[in-house]
Design a protein around this nucleic acid. Structure first.
Ligand SMILES: [Mn+2]
Ligand SMILES: [Mn+2]
Ligand SMILES: [Zn+2]
Ligand SMILES: [Zn+2]
Lengths: 121, 121
DNA sequence: ATTGATATTGATAATCATTATCATTTCTGG
DNA sequence: CCAGAAATGATAATGATTATCAATATCAAT
């Protein structure tokens, strides 16, 4: 997964914003790459696990990926215009781990998204 | 959709307030109800659109439904057996409001769910 | 009560993103 | 070079969700 991952990331970068695995796959095919769909999924999963790529889900459940400059963080999304601000959540990380530990849970992950109306809206 | 919806909601309530559409369907079958899977989906969608039921997604993308709690709280869910613990999040509430204010957002809501493996799993 | 329009339902098939397989190819250390 | 390990891509399988559609219930107006 060392050879294909950079190509997948580059394609995701060229895609601009959010893109699904299927879209990344199609884009790579259009550029003549022969990378397989399974490899695209593998690369994106690895990237997500390494926190170099963000993943969130559309309303229909499809996963969308986006290149992420910084490390683990969350989002503040305007429900009207879609404007998205990346936010730090060190307080939340700490809280999540504490809660999990208090309840005997292991391998904890969390979903934290904020929604509201931005200044323009 | 008027006749089946109450039964679906009642079943969701019995499930402990947290279940997938498939689980609700199975539960109803075990109780002798002949309600179809499609109807369960229809009822849950309607309930979500009416804000009487919340929907969130597991890491694998499956949708989970729960009755809207009277009091605001969050959940720690076992990704293996589905065990759910309700947790307080006052630290998170404060953090969410601060972040929103710092970014000029109004009418902020948030989605905060924790996932992991419980002691048994 | 009888019609007929309309909405609801449940079984079934179709959709489609994601995963699992597996044979083939590519890497790697020696 | 060479065996073993890792990566890859084609393909099939999985499984939740959605779309169909014929059958049935609802209901207002005769
Ligand atoms: Mn991000
Ligand atoms: Mn909260
Ligand atoms: Zn906005
Ligand atoms: Zn468990």
């Amino acid at each position: 997964m060392s050879k294909s991952l950079p190509a997948v990331i580059t394609t995701l970068e060229r895609a601009g914003g959010f893109a699904s695995a299927q879209e990344v796959f199609q884009l790579m095919r259009k550029q003549g790459k022969s990378t397989g769909l399974a490899t695209v999924y593998r690369a994106l999963q690895k990237a997500v696990s390494e926190n170099t790529v963000d993943v969130l889900r559309k309303d229909d459940g499809e996963a969308l990926y986006r290149l992420c400059a910084t490390g683990h963080h969350h989002h503040l999304v305007c429900t009207s215009c879609g404007k998205t601000v990346e936010v730090e959540g060190s307080a939340v990380e700490k809280w999540a781990n504490t809660v999990a530990k208090n309840n005997g849970f292991k391998k904890v992950s969390h979903v934290v998204e904020l929604f509201g109306l931005c200044q323009k809206c």
